[in-house]
């Protein structure tokens, strides 16, 4: 077990617990301003998009928006699977099938 990983995990755990405990203990009947609620509600979409897009649009650290980029094509097809099924496990397995097929076809 590596200490740097454990330190990182503990740090992740502390900041996560803080996000949970702060308002459960701190709120006394008052509510968050609607603007803040709206902002925070958009964070997961923003973060997930930020993780996905560079992975599929620039897999070799330069922009490649052509059909030669298997990650982009697979990303689009996987999105279609996700919209159709709304099921994480099917989406992951389907996505892996698509990328394997593309790599096999493209070589």
């Amino acid at each position: 077990m590596r200490s740097e990983i454990i330190i990182t995990l503990v740090g992740m755990g502390i900041v996560t617990y803080l996000t949970r405990v702060l308002f459960i203990v701190g709120m006394k009947g008052d509510r968050l301003p609607p603007f803040v609620v709206r902002w925070l509600s958009y964070v997961p979409v923003a973060v997930l998009t930020a993780i996905i897009c560079p992975m599929i649009a620039a897999p070799e650290k330069h922009l490649n928006l052509t059909y030669d980029n298997p990650y982009l094509v697979a990303g689009i097809l996987t999105t279609i699977i996700a919209v159709a099924t709304k099921n994480l496990v099917i989406t992951v397995i389907g996505g892996m099938g698509v990328i394997l097929l593309l790599k096999f076809l493209v070589g």
């Binding site: 979409v45 997930l48 996505g95």
Partner: peptide, 29 residues
């Protein structure tokens, strides 16, 4: 990447989410 797509898609519920997605796509790349 597929797992993240599977997590993201159910979060898209309204116009605001689509807007944030488009901004985040351009900005992140």
């Amino acid at each position: 990447a597929a797992a993240f797509i599977g997590l993201l898609v159910p979060q898209i519920r309204g116009k605001g989410d689509i807007l944030v997605l488009l901004i985040a796509a351009a900005l992140s790349v």
